[in-house]
């Protein structure tokens, strides 16, 4: 078996050496807010790969709510790599299709998350309601915008961040549940994805506080309405790790395995880290990013999903599966 693998590898290497420049087409299935990031990253990777190997890579993108995107890959969307909002959605693909191993998250550094983010508040200019921390979101009459945790990865991070804050402050899961119940009573619309929610808050002008990915909040702040919004950093938030992985079976079938791996590894390279920071994702190697970009990130006390909730599998089951805490508090409303 081993011998066979080695011979195959050797043959592949020999073939690669003989063959002249090749054309690859990769499909990256991603979640909503990474659109701008991957436009720039894909261009940079294609140039890098061409310089390195002489081969041309075209990268196609598909974006949508993380849960919906995972569903499409399970139903047969031929993604070479998935770059989604949270580990659970990628777990679901591994479990339902068996196209890559269940321990995929160990294959790349930092739990396969080349960049991280967190959840912050976006408020309107001058912060008219004086929102400072999570406690201000449960006051009566405050309109809170968040997408639907059932379909949006970002919304699940929102929900868990609120839960973690309340549990740390009031000491129990019951208190946290009451807190999140009150919070969701203040939510007027549940959009299906992060982008829809941003549009609701920014374009349609609904709500007072937008619970948002940090990167999405910066985008709204700097590119949508300069001077119209402010970011409020809560006293405690959650470390959001959007992971990436190769869908081995799909990539292998298209002969893209090597280039798909190189693509994801490039996210960890100095260039990849610099581009991530530029698009408001927190790089795991800040030393490679532009210091001015890194300086934009405020210091936040972050809790981690594994320590606080026992990992995504458990968090998903307790909070977001049918009949989980979200169903209980939201249906009761």
């Amino acid at each position: 078996m081993k011998l066979k693998t080695i011979t195959t590898l050797l043959a592949a290497t020999a073939l690669a050496a003989v063959a002249s420049a090749k054309n690859y087409e990769l499909l990256n299935v991603s979640y909503d807010p990474t659109r701008e990031l991957y436009v720039e990253f894909n261009k940079s990777f294609a140039e890098h790969y061409k310089a390195e190997t002489g081969d041309t890579v075209t990268i196609r993108q598909s974006h949508g709510g993380a849960g919906k995107q995972a569903r499409a890959v399970i139903d047969g969307l031929a993604a070479d790599v998935v770059t989604l909002a949270l580990a659970y959605d990628i777990d679901a693909i591994a479990e339902k299709t068996g196209k890559f191993p269940a321990d995929w998250q160990k294959r790349l550094p930092n739990a396969s998350s080349p960049y991280t983010s967190t959840i912050v508040f976006l408020v309107r200019k001058g912060n008219p309601l004086g929102v400072k921390d999570w406690d201000d979101l449960v006051k009566p009459g405050v309109g809170v915008i968040t997408p639907n945790p059932k379909t949006s990865g970002g919304a699940r991070w929102n929900y868990l961040a609120a839960w973690a804050y309340a549990k740390n402050k009031y000491g129990s899961d019951d208190a946290a549940r009451d807190f999140v119940t009150k919070l969701f009573k203040n939510v007027p619309v549940l959009d299906s994805g992060a982008r829809g929610a941003t549009t609701t808050f920014v374009q349609r002008g609904i709500g007072d506080v937008f619970l948002s990915w940090e990167n999405e909040a910066f985008l709204a702040l700097n590119e949508l309405g300069k001077g119209e919004f402010e970011i409020i950093v809560p006293s405690l938030s959650i470390l959001a790790q959007p992971p990436v992985t190769v869908v081995d079976a799909n990539a292998k079938k298209k002969g893209n395995l090597a280039v798909a791996q190189a693509y994801l590894e490039y996210l960890y390279s100095p260039d990849g880290q610099r581009i991530a920071a530029k698009h408001y994702y927190r790089p795991i190697h800040p030393e490679h990013a532009d210091p001015a970009d890194v300086a934009r990130f405020p210091e936040v006390k972050l809790v981690n999903i594994d320590d606080e909730f026992g990992g995504w599998q458990k968090a998903q089951k307790t909070h977001f599966a049918d009949g989980g805490t979200f169903d209980q508090i939201y249906l009761k409303k």
């Binding site: 499909l27 909503d32 659109r35 196609r60 993108q61 598909s62 974006h63 969307l77 982008r195 829809g196 549009t199």
Partner: peptide
């Protein structure tokens, strides 16, 4: 998939988002 399976109505949605 942009440049592959997006029709014009879907493209409008993408640009808007």
């Amino acid at each position: 998939i942009r440049g592959e399976t997006n029709t014009l109505p879907l493209h409008v949605e993408i640009l808007y988002n």
